[in-house]
Design a protein around this nucleic acid. Structure first.
Length: 570
RNA sequence: UGGGGCGUGGCCAAGUGGUAAGGCACGGGAUUUUGGUUCCCGCAUGCGUAGGUUCGAACCCUACCGCCCCAGCCA
């Protein structure tokens, strides 16, 4: 955890429920056991991070166990590559599954045996209806379904047919195994759900060993019960699958007692949206495929990989998860909360450095020619242990273009004609002359400095309100900065159903600044480290190599900017 | 008159019959060589609405309103 106190007890309803379970002795001699069950068919995003961390922290809080189990029951959609990236992301987040890595496909054999027992018990049957027929027999939301003509086949016939399904005698889609429950149930999930389908497809782990694969509703509760998961947490759209979950678990315990001893229970909690981004797999894929972003790990993406590359820390994501809470109500967290979490961490941990992302040159006309002076600056204000560094100052420097205004509004206390400003850690300068090109763009400023105003040794008595950052031209190292901003211009890009969400993409979500002058200390920075470029925001030294070999820094988040607010108000 | 779920300030979220925690955001002020940080202060006479029970209701009861999810051989 980060430096600030974070020892309060969890207060979410799931934590409370587990505590009560423990007090009641509802777990018997078992310890709390959770799991995260990703399907290896895509990349993890911030929403998954919440689920991962919730499951992991809950297990940890109660000194229990945490499994990582890949839900790989659909060979058509799943790949090893996703298994790898998912593990990398979870590991990075800090959720440690130890030796407890599992795959649903590990249990294909025993699951088949369980299915056979369901058939023997008259609780499952092979149905020859086509996919379309099954759909129409299912009924509608308001009308009961109709029983399949194959519903009352004998156990012997079902056993034979199921066995032959397994052997590969039938074509994909020609038959399925269904649980025999209740075609008149108000809950569609209970209307004789399909539990096995024929899929002549190669599986990323089991190869061609199987041509029938279990469905989620059959597979998941069984896997949970088999692993002894005590608390199976899932998102709220599975709430109406719970009766089926319980049905499977109950029958597993009764029909397969030698393998399944524990009655796992499912608890649902609401997913959470984030403002200024999208979270659905489909929309994220479109962003990538239509090249609105540069891949799944583009720093603007809400994917774990994207956030990692942006420079977010696992800690800040965990903090966000804790602060945003858990409930069953639909909710949308504000990006501002996430940003607060990373700023709070970096405020006390990120060394300060100076870089000028949009420079104009300043000539200090009364500076002794060719002279360089070293000025000291603290690395992290208020943290003496973080030390300080020497920064070269000279008669030619860069300052930020928007730190100068020819016609400053009231309360602008940066540099203006005939005005004064302090150069952070150095001297107070006055602007004497402004130079422009033919288009009227400012090209250069002539200023004079006041030798009496050296930082820490100011004898001038001047009180200058503004302090700006700078970089000595002669000593500057050149870097690239990627200035990231919100990917969308509106809070909820999914809101307007009839407008394509890509229309609200922020055209300025990435501004690349090349040849940005930065103070010499930047050259000693190590890839993968985080800094604050003074007054500009927190940046991450991207460890990936850039095209030109120059270091590049991703802006993780801007600093809060009260001035921007004041300006906006006019 | 299908089933399930949810409604507490701008966004989250505690609270589970005793008179509305906390965080973020927002507004104001102080400090500040980052318009950053930090520190003060403010921010629901109100808990979807309307009734009812009670000495007392966000919490209990009734009715209504609104929003979300479900008709994959996806998960």
């Amino acid at each position: 955890m980060s430096g600030h106190k974070k020892t309060e007890e969890m207060t979410n309803f799931i934590y409370t429920m587990i505590k009560e379970d423990l007090e009641r002795g509802a777990l018997g001699d078992k310890c709390v056991h959770t799991r995260f069950p990703p399907e290896p068919n895509g990349y993890l995003h911030i929403g998954h991070a919440r689920a991962i961390l919730l499951n992991y922290k809950l297990a940890k809080a109660f000194d229990g166990k945490f499994n990582l189990r890949f839900d790989d029951t659909n060979p058509i959609k799943e790949e090893q590559a996703f298994v790898d990236s998912i593990m990398e992301d979870i590991r990075w987040l800090g959720a440690d599954w130890g030796e407890r890595l599992f795959f649903s496909s590990d249990y294909f054999d025993i699951k088949y045996q369980f299915a056979v027992r369901l058939v023997e018990a008259g609780l499952a049957y092979v149905c020859d209806l086509s996919q379309e027929e099954i759909r129409s027999y299912r009924g509608t939301l308001t009308e009961a379904g109709t029983e399949s003509p194959y519903r009352n086949r004998s156990s012997e016939e079902n056993l034979d047919l199921f066995e032959r399904m397994r052997k590969g005698e039938f074509a994909d889609g020609s038959r399925v195994l269904r649980a025999k429950i209740d075609m008149a149930s108000g809950n569609l999930n209970m209307r004789d759900p399909v539990i096995y389908r024929i899929l002549h497809a190669s599986h990323h782990r089991t190869g061609d060993q199987w041509c029938i694969y279990p469905m989620y509703d059959f597979d998941h509760p069984f896997s949970d019960a088999l692993e002894g998961i005590t608390h199976s947490l899932c998102s709220i759209e599975y709430a109406d699958h719970r009766p089926l979950y319980d049905w499977i678990v109950e029958n597993a315990v009764n029909l397969f007692p030698e393998a399944v001893k524990y009655r796992s229970r499912q608890t649902e909690f609401a997913r959470m949206n984030l403002t200024y981004t999208v979270m659905s797999k489909r929309k994220l894929r479109r962003l990538v495929e239509e090249n609105h972003v540069d891949g799944w790990n583009d720093p603007r993406m809400p994917t774990i990989a994207g956030m990692r590359k942006r420079g977010y820390t696992p800690n800040s994501i965990a903090d966000f998860q804790e602060r945003s809470g858990v409930s069953r109500a639909d909710s949308t967290a504000e990006l501002a909360l996430l940003e607060h979490c990373i700023r709070e961490e970096l405020e006390t941990t990120a060394p300060r450095l100076m870089a000028v992302t949009d420079p104009i040159k300043v000539i200090i006309t009364n500076w002794p020619e060719a002279q360089t002076e070293m000025v000291g600056m603290e690395n992290i204000p208020g943290d003496e242990a973080a030390g300080s560094r020497q920064v070269p100052f000279s008669g030619e420097i860069y300052i930020e273009r928007d730190d100068f205004m020819e016609e400053p509004p009231k309360k602008f206390f940066r540099l203006a004609p005939d005005g004064e400003v302090r150069l952070k850690g150095a001297y107070v300068i006055r602007c004497d002359e402004v130079f422009k090109d033919e288009q009227g763009n400012i090209t250069k400023l002539h200023c004079t400095y006041d030798p009496q105003t050296r930082s820490g040794a100011d004898t001038s008595g001047k009180k200058v309100k503004g302090v700006i950052h700078w970089v000595s031209v002669e000593h500057a190292v050149r870097i690239t900065t990627n200035l990231y901003d919100n990917l969308f211009t509106i809070e909820n890009p999914e809101e307007e159903k009839d407008v394509d969400f890509t229309l609200n993409i922020n055209p300025d979500s990435l501004v690349v600044c090349k040849d940005v002058p930065a103070e010499p200390a930047v050259a000693e920075a190590t890839p993968g480290s985080r800094f604050q470029f003074l007054r500009k925001g927190y940046f991450y030294y991207d460890p990936d190599a850039s095209e030109d070999g120059k270091p590049f820094f991703n802006r993780i988040v801007k600093l809060k900017d009260t001035w921007a607010k004041v300006k906006k108000k006019g």
